[in-house]
Write a protein that binds this DNA or RNA. Structure first.
Lengths: 137, 137
DNA sequence: CTTACTGTAATGATAAACGTTACAGATTGA
DNA sequence: TCAATCTGTAACGTTTATCATTACAGTAAG
């Protein structure tokens, strides 16, 4: 699983816990333990998809653009790592019945698998994640 | 997704299509487009789990040990890439509420996700895969 | 006893993931 | 207007994971 996905969840959770206030990539990166540039890259994606807003310059940073309960983990998965489940087959032998057709068969199966995973991830909105974090305290 | 998983499926499908006959790692590797040693490594795993038998020496190779319909994709997933779904979090900041607890929360969620995926993969026995390959011809 | 296999360790090459530097553009406040 | 503080992104370097390859011991057949 792509770590962009978990970084997205982590960042948004942090934003959720300080509603109305901007968080800088430095602050978020310190919490997540990665480089600020990676945070900006991931949040740049989230911004393009309308989940957050950003502001440059002094006092700038990132802030939620929509309601917590409107974002679920499947949304984030789709943005950050769609296709991760899809197995990367090496180029197999087209002369062989198995080699020639395995790729297509697996592709179909894993498309279904990802959709199935989606049904599970849709059940978790960021609100649920935030609640779970709060429970851990 | 780990390619060991697809190699396992590929190899077993090939074995399934020539029941009663041994297949060498060379033949399988040619079909799958990878190095024979990789095939032997993956099949070594499958052997340890009782799905196939192997025989060394002239005329040796690999052959099914159980019935096609007794092996499903979840079995193979568990052997070859259990935990793949689990996101690798970088070590986050323990001083931060989010950093300190995110790992545990995500772990729980993804454990559920993998189980959910399992329910889907259990629906595909190797027999189904073989049938799909045959349909493609 | 040679040939044809599996089994596995060890090493090397390639690719993906990630960190880091660098700098342009935006905004604020002095 | 100028310095300080942010985002946004490209470019480059480093580390890690994946995979190929070599090497060789062990086993079975003829």
């Amino acid at each position: 699983m792509n770590s962009d996905f978990t970084l997205a969840i982590h960042s948004l959770t942090l934003l959720a816990l300080q509603p109305g206030r901007m968080a800088t990539s430095d602050v978020i990166s310190e919490s997540a333990g990665v480089h600020p540039v990676r945070i900006r890259k991931v949040l740049s994606l989230l911004k393009r998809n309308g989940f957050i807003k950003s502001k440059e310059g002094t006092g700038g940073g990132f802030i939620f653009a929509i309601d917590l309960s409107e974002v679920n983990l499947w949304d984030l998965y789709k943005i950050t790592c769609k296709g991760t489940l899809q197995p990367k087959c090496p180029e197999s032998n087209e002369q062989c019945i198995v080699g020639a057709n395995m790729h297509k068969v697996l592709f179909t199966i894993f498309l279904g698998a990802e959709e199935h995973l989606g049904e599970f991830l849709k059940e978790y909105s960021l609100k649920e994640v935030v609640d779970l974090i709060n429970q851990e305290r």
